[in-house]
Write a protein that binds this DNA or RNA. Sequence first.
RNA 1: UGGGGCGUCGCCAAGCGGUAAGGCACCGGGUUUUGAUCCCGGCAUCCGUAGGUUCGAAUCCUGCCGCCCCAGCCA
Length: 563
Amino acid sequence: MEIIENKETRPLDFIRQIIADDLQTGKHQGTVTRFPPEPNGFLHIGHAKSICLNFGIAEENHGRCNLRFDDTNPSKEDVAYVESIQKDVQWLGFDWGEKVLYASDYFPQLHAYAVELIQIGKAYVCQLLPDEIRQYRGTLTEPGKESPYRNRSVAENLQLFEQMKNGEFEEGTHVLRAKIDMASPNLNMRDPVIYRILKAHHHRTGATWKIYPMYDYTHCLSDMLEGITHSLCTLEFQDHRPLYDWVLDTLNTPCHPRQIEFARLNLTYTVMSKRKLLKMVEGRYVEGWDDPRMLTISGLRRRGYTPASIRNFARTIGIGKSESRIDMGVLENEIRNDLNLRADRRMCVLDPVKVIIDNYPEGLIEEMVGKNHPQDPAMGERMLPFSKELYIERDDFMENPSKKYHRLGPGREVRLRYGYLIQYVSHVTDETTGKITEIHCTYDPETKSGSAPDGRKVKGTIHWVSAEKGLPVTVRLYDRLFKVEDPEADKAVDFLEQLNPMSRVIISGAVAEPSLAALQPGETVQFERQGYFCADPLESKIGRPVLNRTVTLRDSWESKGQL
RNA sequence: UGGGGCGUCGCCAAGCGGUAAGGCACCGGGUUUUGAUCCCGGCAUCCGUAGGUUCGAAUCCUGCCGCCCCAGCCA
């Protein structure tokens, strides 16, 4: 039986709409898109949006999406980045086919096209200094002035360009410019530089080239050479589209991809620019590009986000042209949805306080059975050792609880999850610190595994760990990196001053149920009543887990201010 | 005050001349040995604003207002 693809009935975004139209009218037989990162930094959640768009379109139309490194500026780029980028795209679950592509693969062709531009009188070598070029460009409201080098002969331009290529000139002394219109209201069209001299070592072509093509010139031609049908980029390139089109039209190329722009992703409680992320890394405000608080793909991976959650997130937020700032809660919601289905349940006490069950036999250890998932029996069960001395969460006991609080307190009875019902007897407080050191209870032997034969109702169920059999674990509670929704809103305040000092709280006294000893690095579990925690892929070891909190559980008690 | 864009519920986002989808958030209620999950219900007489065209407009036209982007030999 043929499996019919479950096409969602949700409306197409404006880009997919354009593509559907192009396919329908026969303008294109299929789609070819591309994801073109510059290898000068790590990919972040904003890139993931673009990746999901471009590769998603390829999947939906049985088309192709190229991974192409836009490596035209050797002074900023590095192989380390090309490796991390490939890993991240792959991890997200996308496939770029045969091989990775590089703009630098096209340097010879790009050069030949530049020569052609010179030959048809559409490009010239300019010897204005960088500063002079800026002055000649004019301003937003005044037209620019033509360069004195603008009307050199074709022969002279060819000669000079060849000399640039041969490394005969110093950086900054000569550039190749497109001859368009110095009076254009679009500054990008005022004879843009298309080649500059750069004597840096290129990560792939080494010292072969002394001149490198600029983005605007490179991108459209690379798209064309790959037969890209739809070239998707962010809004700030809208003003560059006329230049994209000019190059392809002027060179009369065999195909002409359509550039379409969409709004980049912004999220609340974080910053997205590579520059700012780099500043946090270099200033040691975070541990590195893959710090679990970073919204980089590698940071999210370490935090415990799954590829599915990120792809669902991209689908949920959609594609549009209006600048937006998505609520971080939307991302968090996606990872909860995903992990809720697949994470095993476990118990871990983060801030332990000792409970002594006075009437429980000394030395007895009982094995209780816990479900790995409350709704999915197929996920199995595990054993939980129960003993006279236990730890419970300090939060789960109150000396003077309100009526709405249904955990442990004087006179209260609560259920220990998968354990017994226990009844409060007394508690001991340290005189000097004022902290509660132990709570005495009695248990009802008739209530093993948590239900009372007499049918009496117990409102609260709390988690616990055997004091004797518990496993000490290191837990890091991660929270949003910034304390304000938009760290960049106030121009007078440096975004670094808005960092959330509580974005990482390291807990060393936590105790988990013994099954946590088997946790594999990278594996994620739910600590019941608390949240999802991922064994750090780098620092966690079998038997000695280090857990990163991915996200808390939704909590309608805390969030309602515990009325 | 040059050019290019954008303005639909708190946050996203459908809508493409026929009388406001969906998600998140929020608010009720139910189930529940996670105050989780799940389930049910509520949530824009109104689409930046003022006019105009039309039997009829968020959708077409005009003016106005607000916000974003552009003066790298960065991408």
